[in-house]
Amino acid sequence: MAKTAERFAFATFDVLESERIAGPRYSYWKSVFQTFFKRKTAIFWLALLLSLTLMSFIQPLVSGYDPAVAPNINTPSTWYQKPSAEHWFGTDDRGNDLWDVVWSGTRMSLSIAFIAAAINIGVGILVGAVWGYSKRLDPILLAVYNVVSNVPYILRSMMLMYIFGRGFWQMILAMTITGWLSIAFFIRTQVMIIRDREYNLASRCLGTPLKRMVTRNILPYMVSVIATLIYQEIPGLINTETILSYLGIGLPSTYPSLGRMIDVYWSFVDTYPHMIVFPGVVMGLVTISFYVVGQLFADASDPRTHR
């Protein structure tokens, strides 16, 4: 019974074995993408988002559509055409191919939203980070924030559009001049919360250098926060653009834009519904896909969802 003897002898104690944590090695970004791509809906919406974005930036280059030029304005036979093999989305009241019009409009709306979002989020994060850490700056910025946030954002943008006049850069200016403030406030609150969490206090006590604190302790949490900001900001800014343009105080008529399209084509909604349906559907899909992809990515980038 040598076997029994062996079984009932003391085994050698392996410290490493006892310390083995059963979980696999953890890599933040790998987990983010794994969690994200595990969902089929995420892949679907991401594919849609990418194709819509690419389409709206490439198609106008090919079509060369310019709202100031209407080559078919004197050829009534080209007006109001229903969707066909030649004109996928049909034509509008001036004989323009709606396929071209819609993508140029989307490009314009997206360009404005991208640039304004980049500024708002960039400035917002920078100021917010400083704001969250600086005790001296806090009351000043808080007072400014309290006053500015009393006026609804859309009202502020309209007011500023009025002051700057209509135009592409004027609109971006109107959207960004106070737009960063609420983002900075949001970041400030997040920074304050994360900064004072026990593990960060502990980490600081242990002498972790600031750079490591930022990259290892704070940033992984902020990725999710920033993703949240982006997915709310871009559809939000597209919304602002469409409202301003629809109300006739946004982009001038020489610019293609989704908001102006709704404004101009709405009078044909009963007679030629395709003129409203196609811009509407594209506008809806673009904004929803941004929102959903962003939301799913924000979920996936929250370390608490990793397993």
Partner: peptide
């Protein structure tokens, strides 16, 4: 050491890997 993960089937005595008196 640390307790074993309960996700996996535990073979033998769960405390064995941390036990100086393990047989």
């Amino acid at each position: 050491g640390t307790p074993p993960t309960l996700f996996n089937e535990i073979k033998g005595d769960a405390f064995a890997p941390r036990n100086r008196y393990a047989l």
